[in-house]
């Protein structure tokens, strides 16, 4: 009998206490932030400096050395560099990144030799943005082409012309000349 009454008392007392606790939560401010449109400041600004968002390539800075492509363990990067008359050294023909595959391991960034900026805004040619909103409606939206398709076709043509010109020039200079090293295949 005493256990019976004690059970009843415990049930009512614990329900009372529990309801007091939940009611106290009703009087607190929710900690949820309303993403993305009702934020005090945009999310990328609140992220830490070494946050790894989506991969980004500075096509101006890139020397098309393909070190990042070699460093990547899962072939996220698909790129090609060749000699054109645009600038000295190699020119980027195309540079595609498969965001769906990337696992944000940072190996490509470590491998990248091209750097720019001071202590604050320091970044390499390939680097992680603080941007994470990469979702799209189709699978092909996950492939980012840093050099647009038409531009890439144009550059490829230029590269072929340059190669043909150089080959012709080399043939004219000396018949048994050393074969020039072309851009990465």
């Amino acid at each position: 009998m005493t256990t019976y009454l004690k059970n009843i008392w415990e049930a009512s007392a614990t329900v009372f206490e529990g309801m007091a606790i939940t009611f106290s939560y009703l009087l607190q401010r929710p900690i949820t932030v309303q993403y993305p449109d009702r934020l005090k400041e945009p999310v990328p600004k609140t992220l830490p400096k070494n946050y790894r968002g989506r991969l980004m390539v500075d096509t101006e800075l890139c020397t098309a050395c393909a070190l990042c492509q070699k460093a990547c363990p899962i072939d996220v990067i698909e790129m090609k560099g060749a000699r054109t008359e645009r600038k000295k050294g190699l020119t980027l023909i195309y540079f595609n990144i498969y965001h769906g595959k990337c696992m944000y391991c940072n190996l490509c960034v470590e491998a990248c030799p091209a750097e720019e900026g001071d202590e604050e805004a320091h970044h390499t040619a390939i680097y992680f943005k603080k941007d994470f909103e990469g979702s799209g409606y189709e699978l092909k939206d996950l492939v980012e082409q840093f050099i647009p398709r038409e531009e890439a076709i144009q550059r490829l043509k230029e590269a072929e012309e340059t190669a043909a010109k150089r080959a012709a020039k080399a043939a004219a200079e000396s018949a048994p000349a050393e074969p020039k090293k072309e851009g990465n295949a």
Binding site: T22, Y25, L26, Q28, P30, I31, T32
Partner: peptide
């Protein structure tokens, strides 16, 4: 709405 507020969300 009430459930949200009781769980610290909106």
């Amino acid at each position: 709405r009430i459930a949200g507020r009781m769980q610290s969300r909106i």
